[in-house]
Nucleic acid binder design. Structure first.
Lengths: 185, 185
DNA sequence: ATAATATATATGTTTTATCCTATATATGAG
DNA sequence: CTCATATATAGGATAAAACATATATATTAT
C-alpha cells in the first residue's frame, strides 16, 4: 500500500492527527493520490498496531481529544527503505480513455463534442496547476523546507506536463475530426 | 464501474467468452485499463443478471463448455448512453510520484539513481509502444474495422505522448540534480 | 433563529480489484 | 516422461477504496 508510506512520509516531517493529515493530503498530493478520510484513520490504526507510529492523546475540553501520531524509529526505517527502493509499478486506469476507445459507435459530431469536453476539462485543470504554487494551503504553511518544497514542485510539474501533452493530443484530434480524417466504418 | 462498459464495448463488436475477453483486454486496453481474469468472469455474471448480456452455452467434448456472451438490446443502449455521456473523472494514483514527493530524505546520489531508474523504465515502455501497432495481437486479428482501429490508435497515442512528457520531465530533473540545483535542507 | 462550516474521531457497508487455488483436458517442447 | 502452455471456468480470501453515517461542540454567516 502506498497510502501508508505517504502517511509515514508526512509524519516524518511532523506529528499530526488524522484530521490534519486529511487536509494536508488534499492540499499537496491529491493530484496524484487522493485519500479518503476514513481510509486515513484506518491506516493510522493499522500503522499503530505495527508500531510504525505512536499515538499521543492530547485532551481537549471543548472538542474530541486529539490523537496526535508520531513516527517511530522503525517507521522511519520502513519509510526510508520504501522510498529508496525500486519504483512501484503503476497500473494506470483511465475511464475517459475507455470512452475514447469505444467512441466509434458515436457520430462524428458527437465525438467532436466529446473531445471538446475533454479539452475544456484539461484546460481547467491546467489553470488550477498554475494557481497552486501561489495559494498557500495548509501544506505549505506548516511543513515544507526548501528541499521538501522542491520535490513537491516536481510532482506538480509532472502533472502539468502530462496534462499539457494530453491537451495537445485532444486538440490534434479535434483538428483531425474537423478535417474529416476519421475513418467511416 | 468502467470495466463493465469496456466488456459491453467488446461484446458490441462480437460475442466472446470470458477467456477470449481476457486475451483481448491484454492486447488492446491493458495500457490504460488492466483487467484481472476473475474480475472479468464476475462482471460477466453480473451483467447477465442485469440482462445487459446473454449467455449462450456452446458444448465441447474435450474441454469445458464455452460460455459465449452476447450483448442485448438494453446492453447496447446502456453502452451508448455511457460512451456518449459526460467524461468520468479520473482519480489518478501514482505510487512512483509518492516516492518522488518524499525523496528529500535521500541523498542526492540516491535521488539521481532513482530518476535514472524511472527514465529507464519509461524508455522501455516507449519502445514497446512503438512496436505495438506492428505486432498483430488477438485484438487486431479478430475485431477491428478501420474506424475501431483508429480509436485504438488514439489511445496508444495518448499513452505514448504522456509517457514522453514524463520521460522528458525525468531527464530534466537528472540534469538539475547533476548541476546541483536541488536545495539542501 | 437557523444553517453552514470547522474541529475531531469512528465504524458499518459495499464495491472494486488482486491473489491464489481448483477443476479438466490437449498439445507441443525438452 | 515430464513440464510448460493453451483452452475454459469458477470461487474463496484478502486488500483497497468509496460511500454513508454517527457523535459532539464552537463559531460564523444569513
Amino acid at each position: 500500500m502506498s497510502l501508508e508510506f505517504a502517511i509515514l512520509g508526512f509524519l516524518n516531517y511532523h506529528p499530526y492527527t488524522g484530521y490534519d493529515l486529511k487536509k494536508i493530503f488534499d492540499s499537496s498530493v491529491r493530484h496524484f493520490w487522493p485519500a479518503d478520510q476514513s481510509q486515513i484513520y484506518r491506516t493510522l490504526a493499522n500503522l499503530t498496531e505495527r508500531s510504525l507510529v505512536q499515538m499521543e492523546k492530547v485532551p481537549q475540553d471543548d472538542r474530541p481529544d486529539r490523537k496526535v501520531y508520531h513516527i517511530t524509529d522503525s517507521g522511519r526505517e520502513e519509510l526510508r527503505k520504501w522510498v529508496a527502493g525500486p519504483a512501484p509499478l503503476d497500473e494506470p486506469r483511465s475511464a475517459p480513455l475507455i470512452q475514447v476507445f469505444f467512441s466509434g459507435i458515436l457520430t462524428d459530431e458527437e465525438i467532436l463534442q466529446k473531445f471538446e469536453g475533454y479539452a475544456g476539462i484539461m484546460r481547467m485543470i491546467l489553470e488550477r496547476y498554475d494557481q497552486v504554487p501561489s495559494q498557500l494551503g495548509p501544506f505549505e504553511k506548516e511543513i515544507t523546507s526548501p528541499r521538501e518544497h522542491f520535490f513537491w514542485l516536481l510532482t506538480l510539474e509532472n502533472g502539468m506536463l502530462s496534462m499539457k501533452a494530453s491537451l495537445e493530443w485532444a486538440e490534434s484530434i479535434i483538428q483531425r475530426i474537423k478535417s474529416g480524417q476519421v475513418p467511416q466504418e
